[in-house]
Each structure stands twice: as C-alpha cells, then as structure tokens.
C-alpha cells in the first residue's frame, strides 16, 4: 500500500534557481523584515498600552522578549541540549 504512494519524484531539477533561492532576494526579504520590526517598535509610541502587570508596558518589552527569548531558545537547544541528547540515527536499532 504505502510503497505505491511513496514514489519520490526526483525528475527534472531545474537548472535555474527560483526567485527565493537567489541570494540577493533573500537579503531583500531580510531587510524588509528589519524595517517592519523597526516600525513595530516605533508604534509603541502611538498606541497606548494598558499594561496589566506594569513591566509589560515598557517600551519595546515584547520585541525584546521575543528576540532574546528566541535566541536563548536556539542557543540553549544547540549548545546545551543537542550535545546531551544527540545520537546516531540508528541508535535504538542495534
């Protein structure tokens, strides 16, 4: 049953790279993201925030939290967790 469904279709890899794969386009997207982030932080000035706990009303709190949290997450996962738990793919097989 499953074998039939699993025909990977590897034919015809196009020679030319798609729009998204070209390096200059990726850079453009990254820059767009930077700009959006900047605008979002600046919006803090315009929109009055009704802070529930006090500290979450500070300027740029959510942005900083998101950024630092994510970096922390990835770095801990990469340098903290992976060395401990990573095993070869067929670890349980032998």
């Amino acid at each position: 049953m499953r074998e039939e469904q699993l025909k990977p279709d590897n034919a015809a890899v196009p020679a030319q790279k798609g729009w998204l794969e070209r390096k200059e386009n990726v850079t453009k997207i990254a820059w767009a993201l930077y700009v959006v982030c900047a605008i979002l932080v600046l919006l803090d000035f315009l929109i009055h925030r009704h802070a529930e706990m006090g500290f979450d009303g500070n300027f740029g709190f959510y942005g900083a939290y998101g950024f630092i949290g994510s970096v922390f997450l990835v770095l801990v996962a990469k340098y903290g967790l992976r060395p401990i738990v990573k095993r070869s793919e067929d670890y349980y097989d032998d």
Partner: peptide, 10 residues
Amino acid sequence: QLLFFSALAF
C-alpha cells in the same frame, strides 16, 4: 512585536 522579533532572531 513578539512574533516579528522572534522571526528577526531566526
């Protein structure tokens, strides 16, 4: 903000 800065971090 939270999400975009998370994306930024990525």
